[in-house]
Simulated assay, not measured.
Amino acid sequence: MTFGAPSAKWIALTALIALIVAVELQARGVEESYLIRRHGSAHPAYASSAGLSFRLSGV
């Protein structure tokens, strides 16, 4: 087993995971806050009924 430079597969996998995390953080941090400000208490009710209730923060 060699411990040289990471292969292209590992670099691509790491980049994919970083992209998924970035998109999720964007959606939770920015878009959810906007939708709550825009639609008030109707958005959390919709999100829970639509399966969008996973939260990373208490927003």
Rank of each mutant, 00 (worst) to 15 (best):
A27F: 05
A15W: 02
R37C: 13
G58E: 13
L56W: 01
A22V: 05
F54L: 13
A45G: 07
A42Y: 15
A22P: 00
L35F: 09
R28F: 15
E24S: 10
P6V: 04
W10R: 06
G51I: 01
F3G: 11
L25H: 08
A47L: 05
L56G: 01
G40N: 04
V23T: 03
G4T: 06
P44K: 10
L52R: 09
I20D: 00
Y46F: 11
G40Y: 02
L19W: 03
Y46E: 09
A8D: 13
K9S: 05
G29A: 03
S33Y: 13
L16W: 09
S53R: 12
S57K: 09
L19A: 06
V21G: 00
A18H: 03
H43S: 08
G4M: 04
A45M: 10
E24M: 11
S57Q: 14
G40T: 05
L52P: 02
I17L: 01
A5Y: 12
A47D: 07
L25V: 04
T2Y: 09
V23Q: 00
G51C: 04
L52F: 05
L52E: 07
L19G: 07
A18F: 03
S7V: 03
I11M: 08
S7Y: 11
H39M: 05
L16V: 11
A15N: 08
G4L: 06
A27K: 02
V59H: 11
L52W: 08
K9T: 12
S7G: 05
S49N: 10
V59M: 14
